[in-house]
Nucleic acid binder design. Structure first.
Lengths: 121, 121
DNA sequence: TTTCGAGGTTAGCCATTGCTTACGTTAGTT
DNA sequence: AACTAACGTAAGCAATGGCTAACCTCGAAA
């Protein structure tokens, strides 16, 4: 889960997201990526390091070149996460569709210490 | 797709991700969220604005309070995206499993203008 | 109507971070 | 061995961005 945070931080930068998108279509070498972006090659290198440390990509040496490809495990983690969120909120919507009948205030955890809410009754 | 970028930028900040995670479990008011985080309430407000503009959450007014909840459409977009990436790379792996037989160099688009790669032959 | 609670907004500060330039490294090529 | 292509790394800089403090708005209670 701590890895999820790093994954989002990695994809949070527009340039890094663009790099990831490109790699997601097919494996790429560093120079190829830099050639299609308005930043220098070292910049791409640094971005790739972040993506790698987040577990989203992996590199394979091929001669003097380094080919980067997506790491399936990283994608799986994100996929599963949004599946969870989706399903959890799907239930919430079904439950909300059932409402109308009961309007019990439900335990309301408040941190500001304000007085208990009176029911609208 | 331009919205995807904003979504990732939104979830890229650790505090904002924490806020989103909390809302993802159940709808929350602003004060509740701030009470569980080491940041001030205005900070939470600003984060919520970003999440809202990214289409990830929506707010519902309830008296003087504002309850934030997840926006299904935003989740769906992210879910679909990773499904695509996953499936595309799944095929790539199956294709890689088939390899071994043919090792034609495949057209290699290079940007650095280096001489054409000689096949290892 | 006055008071209070909950939340959004702004200005400004400071830490983060993305980018470039320069350098070091490795592996092919001649 | 010398040369070169392809990367990674470090330092330094400028801009982005997150946080707080102070202020303003709105709705509900007294």
């Amino acid at each position: 889960m701590a890895n999820l945070e790093k994954a989002f931080e990695a994809l949070g930068d527009p340039t890094r997201l663009a790099i990831f998108q490109r790699i997601a279509t097919r494996p790429h070498a560093v120079g190829e990526i830099a050639g299609h972006l308005p930043v220098s090659r070292p910049a791409v290198s640094q971005h790739l390091r972040v993506l790698k440390e987040a577990g989203l990509v992996a590199d394979v040496k091929n001669g003097t070149r380094r080919v980067y490809e997506v790491r399936p495990e990283g994608i799986e983690a994100l996929r599963k996460y949004f599946d969870q969120v989706w399903e959890r909120n799907l239930k919430a919507f079904q439950a909300a569709a059932d409402k109308k009948s009961r309007e019990k205030g439900s335990s309301d955890d408040r941190s500001t210490g304000s007085p208990a809410r009176k029911k609208v009754h």
